[in-house]
Simulated scan of single mutants.
Amino acid sequence: MIFNTTVFAQTQSHIDSSEYILKIDQHVYSIYYVVNSDIIAMDIDPESKSLLIGLENTYDSKFIIDLEHELINAQDNEFVVLVDSQEVDYKITPDSDSSTFEFFVPVGSEEVEIIGTHVIPEFPFSAIFGLIIMISSIIIFTKVKPSFFKL
């Protein structure tokens, strides 16, 4: 008896993931991620050579994010991952074009920072300042009691 079966392989990197489009100058990056949270913003901080990610409505979950080497990279793949300014352990799976990070984010987490040794250059400082103000404003307004907004 001969069985003829066809097997289709599918990479796991973009299955059941969300996509964030990050535009820096003329560059557009598709950042695929999986996390039980709402991503409110992502941006590059060239001063600290890091990717900043603003979160809200976060529940205990594994955060998986795929980042292109052109966007952020580190010598010997020695990144630092901070969740609400606390360093966390992470697993990294590099390939020729990108690296996939996996780490845990606890309930209530509001910011993730992935620090490398190189990020895409030529990003204006004023845009970073604007992002910080925007994220801070969102966090402050979400913490204010809902009765404040009633007329």
Rank of each mutant, 00 (worst) to 15 (best):
V81C: 01
V81M: 04
V81Y: 00
V83I: 08
D84S: 08
D84P: 08
Q86W: 00
E87Q: 13
E87C: 02
V88P: 05
V88A: 03
D89Y: 04
K91P: 01
I92R: 00
I92N: 06
T93V: 11
T93R: 07
T93K: 07
T93N: 13
P94E: 08
P94K: 04
D95A: 03
S96C: 02
D97R: 11
D97H: 10
S98R: 12
S98F: 07
S99M: 00
T100Q: 12
V105R: 02
V107E: 15
V107K: 15
G108P: 07
G108R: 11
S109Y: 01
E111K: 14
E111V: 06
V112Y: 02
V112F: 00
I115T: 13
I115R: 11
G116M: 10
G116W: 10
T117G: 07
V119R: 02
V119A: 00
V119Q: 00
I120L: 13
P121T: 01
P121L: 00
P121Y: 06
P121G: 14
P121W: 06
E122A: 09
F123Q: 06
P124G: 04
P124N: 12
P124L: 10
F125C: 01
F125S: 15
A127M: 04
A127C: 03
I128L: 15
I128W: 03
I128V: 12
I128S: 08
F129S: 14
F129M: 10
G130N: 15
L131N: 13
I132V: 06
I132Y: 14
I133H: 04
I133W: 01
M134N: 14
M134W: 06
S136Y: 07
S136K: 14
S136N: 15
S136T: 12
S137F: 08
S137I: 01
S137K: 14
I138H: 14
I138Y: 11
I139A: 08
I139V: 09
F141C: 05
F141T: 06
F141G: 01
